[in-house]
Design a protein around this nucleic acid. Structure first.
Lengths: 195, 195
DNA sequence: CTCCAATCGCAACCGGGGTAGCGTTAGCGT
DNA sequence: ACGCTAACGCTACCCCGGTTGCGATTGGAG
């Protein structure tokens, strides 16, 4: 699937240059301002080449998402489920506050909302994230902090959902306290055996 | 602000035709496919007129959102907070399943993610929704079903957030059971005094 | 009924994103 | 080292969303 005929040399350089340019453009202009032409100029790769290999703006996004999926992120291990879950939700919140990471992440969400390919790629991304994050819940169950018949991924979803909801749906600010409260709410539900 | 010099007659006809055409286009093509040109042709209003009064695609969206905000929606009153909260979340879920309403709502979210004006308009919309929905929580508090020192709007947010999160962020399907579980989780958190 | 300004329709234009055909470069197997 | 061909660069072109200037229509006050 991923085995091209010429994976190394110039092709690899072109690929990296375009990917880097895509991310830089997303930081500066966001998804609405992302255009193949700009990416081509910034990367030094010719416009037609980008069109041939990535097809369109959506292709660029999907490719960038593919990369982001593989990068693991620092799951907290504070010793208690409260601390871990709060840590995860704060990680999400601060991620979107970050001047470098925020615009890119936002662009991914924006792209996925209106493009099926990007949506699939982002879905894969979140499947991986949920799986990684659920580890803190599994540990809590092993420690006896939580009942054992719960959907570990759902706890993560319920914990982070309010942050995303505020950011991308209701368009409200998200304070540190809001994030903690979201984590606590998910935890309370898990303890009550609802999840 | 909204008092034009000529609110009636031809201007009013033009306004209604464009609004209706905008919604129809959103249903058929969604936000990415929404263009002033198509709206103009469908409505029978000339292209330049649409540009003059609405400015751009974003203006059309914001105008449509303005209308949607004023429409109240049927808040359930089942007698118990479980039933009411579940009802609200199911209302959200089925709303996006609806072949007529779904695409328009989705388009609103998509537009708001990448346009500041639409984001503001959608924010206003959700402020209104939260306020209306919080009534079921207030009733529950009055009935003694919930502790009284809670943020009534936050209960609603936590309840519906997982549905939106699945739909627009993680891009996962949302089953009827998922929706109920989200409502139950918010309820458990409220009972625990977290919200 | 009359007038005038607000509003709309029209045709021509513009600019940039996206495409097509073709020549050039350089991976990579031998 | 050599040659084949995948992959890239270049030019020219098209298409269509968006803009502009001006003349035609019509709401609504008096």
């Amino acid at each position: 699937m991923e085995s091209s005929k010429r994976p190394g040399g110039r092709s690899a350089r072109v690929r990296d240059a375009v990917r880097q340019a895509t991310l830089a453009e997303l930081v500066e202009r966001g998804y609405p301002g992302l255009t193949v032409e700009n990416v081509a100029e910034r990367s030094g790769v010719h416009k037609t080449t980008v069109y041939r290999r990535w097809g369109s703006v959506e292709g660029l996004i999907s490719d960038a998402l593919e990369l982001a999926k593989d990068e693991p992120w620092p799951i907290p291990d504070t010793g208690s489920i409260e601390g871990d879950l709060r840590g995860i939700v704060q990680l999400v919140r601060t991620g979107f506050d970050d001047p470098e990471l925020g615009p890119v992440s936002t662009a991914f969400v924006a792209a996925a909302v209106q493009n099926p390919d990007a949506a699939r790629a982002l879905h894969e991304f979140f499947v991986a994230r949920h799986e990684q994050s659920a580890e803190v819940v599994r540990r809590a169950v092993a420690r006896g902090e939580l009942p054992d018949v719960i959907d570990v991924r759902e706890v993560v979803r319920v914990a982070v959902a309010p942050v995303y909801y505020r950011l991308f749906v209701a368009h409200e600010p998200v304070s540190e306290r809001d994030a903690d409260r979201a984590a606590d709410a998910a935890l309370a539900a898990a303890r009550a055996g609802v999840l």
